[in-house]
Design a protein around this nucleic acid. Sequence first.
DNA 1: ACCGATTATCGAAGCGCTTCGACAGAGGCG
DNA 2: CGCCTCTGTCGAAGCGCTTCGATAATCGGT
Lengths: 334, 334
Amino acid sequence: MSERAVTISEVARHAGVAVSTVSYVLSGKRAISADTRRRVLDSVRVLGYHPNAGARALASKRANVIALVLPLRVGMHVPVLMQFATSVVTAARQYDHDVLLLTADEGSDGLRRAAASALVDGLVLMDVELHDSRVPLLRELAEPSVLIGFPADSAGLTCVDLDFARAGALCVEHLAERGHTEVALLGAPSVVYDRGTGFARRTREGFAAAVADTGLKGVALSCEENFDQVSAVIAELLDTRPGLSGLVVHNEAAVNHVLGALRQHGRRVPDDVAVVAICPDDIAERSSPPLTSVLIPAEEVGRQAVRLLMEKLEGHVVPEDTLLQPRLTVRDST
Amino acid sequence: MSERAVTISEVARHAGVAVSTVSYVLSGKRAISADTRRRVLDSVRVLGYHPNAGARALASKRANVIALVLPLRVGMHVPVLMQFATSVVTAARQYDHDVLLLTADEGSDGLRRAAASALVDGLVLMDVELHDSRVPLLRELAEPSVLIGFPADSAGLTCVDLDFARAGALCVEHLAERGHTEVALLGAPSVVYDRGTGFARRTREGFAAAVADTGLKGVALSCEENFDQVSAVIAELLDTRPGLSGLVVHNEAAVNHVLGALRQHGRRVPDDVAVVAICPDDIAERSSPPLTSVLIPAEEVGRQAVRLLMEKLEGHVVPEDTLLQPRLTVRDST
DNA sequence: ACCGATTATCGAAGCGCTTCGACAGAGGCG
DNA sequence: CGCCTCTGTCGAAGCGCTTCGATAATCGGT
């Protein structure tokens, strides 16, 4: 084992051509005769050649690696982050790029280091907050970047996200169609609103706007993530708002507690109270009853983020804002 | 913006020394006078020099990057995976290494490609299964690797994991001490056992052994992850085993359903039924009541995995098996 | 049959860094 | 005082690849 790696010059010798010819066969940047191409590719296969990434990066000034930057704080539901991460990796591979994982611990220095050392060609930042400390740096970095989520000032940046305002509205509209007249939003823990996390606020705004538009009665509440607190909020809600019959839950960790609390308080879903959640499909499906939900299209968000980054790497101009339209799946809870 | 990157020769010129001297200052591989060192470091700072990663990798044959390979299937609880991932990244940075994220989609080819192209110096594989298709490849790869989890045949490999057998036993012993005489294990979904996931089986074995040792009565059941099925299992259990008063739950996604089902069936925790979980602390803490639990020390597992890999990269010999001892935290559920 | 354009291939010059061997100068010792 | 050993520094040779310009070879048009 441990045989020294095969180099391009060995491939060239084996195929009886010049090193540059092998390079051109592999990159396709110049025309090569079918015959030569075949001989070279055969040699590549026979010798098990893999181009040396460092050498390639040095000569071409392209590492073919992008950075994926994890959020500063985990405010978002973790499984969703994981979905983003895997879809970014998968999408990147389709463009023949790899993904370097950067965490918040290093803060902006980490981004600067990775970019300045040419370790990566571009950056994807996950779960960007309204006042994200990493954002100013991006503006001065030579490397292109794409954000998942929207900071307060997104001018000059490329951002992708689910249209959360529309998602919040969609839930309200669905409940309105079902004939409900008084609804409530159970959102993120209050700390998430306090620190200005964009998607939580935007959902709330969309909810409020739709409530106004449809002429329903509605309140938006924050929602902690342990059972007792959820149960207390539900009790209070049922108590003070007898007409309430529709619930929008935008909190993956709390959604099962909400169902438990409703059960505890003797309310049946959907007969007494209808519930629509904004959460991943797997959570909605394994709840009892399975929940009508708007899912966060993590897979598509990640794919779009990578696509946009690749466009930028090619030197193309891309739209600054990309909002993905939410889709509501009706299940048994409404 | 976008000013061309500073190179080592510019630093050398600025500091009035040879390129090689700058290199030696930065690597510390040869003695350099204090005066020269200071001048060089000043120039580095003033010019904002960052060594080019590709050039460094090419010349030194070390990329200073390790691969983190995500599991083939997500059988493990996702937040725990995320904890592994972040701790691996953090630990790697402490050794001045970065982390490349590889997913299962590419399978073994991805590993081979990353290794053969010298993109990475070594590999950390997460959530290894008993018969993991990636394992044979590792044996023939020149690059060192460390596994998180144990395959069926771990000979010649370096593996790290929580001692799940001990964790299962610890839970039983705790319940025995509390005076319970009949206990049950609610484990992973049956499909997880079927595909031979090591940690699930090992927990079950530890549970069974401890039940035998302590002379308790006990059964081990698999446990699906939606409320209705959990509720049915709990009903059946309470019905057929009236003496049952202790439950060990090794299933993060189901643990809240278990509590809900017990509530539904009129059992109080811990008065009627004591529950001890094997799960992350945050889940245990936000349950109602907060659960006595054995946590999966993801942070330490990741750190140890990286430490072992770095040792191997240095050419040192490391122990093949590293089993981390579980610790049980008593909360309100027992 | 000759010319210019086109196509296919080659050789060589780097990319920015590490590392090896060489070599001045300083210091220790008999 | 001469010799030897360290120290600290330098210059140059690559590492494996991409890419530029040059050069043959081929071709259609006239």
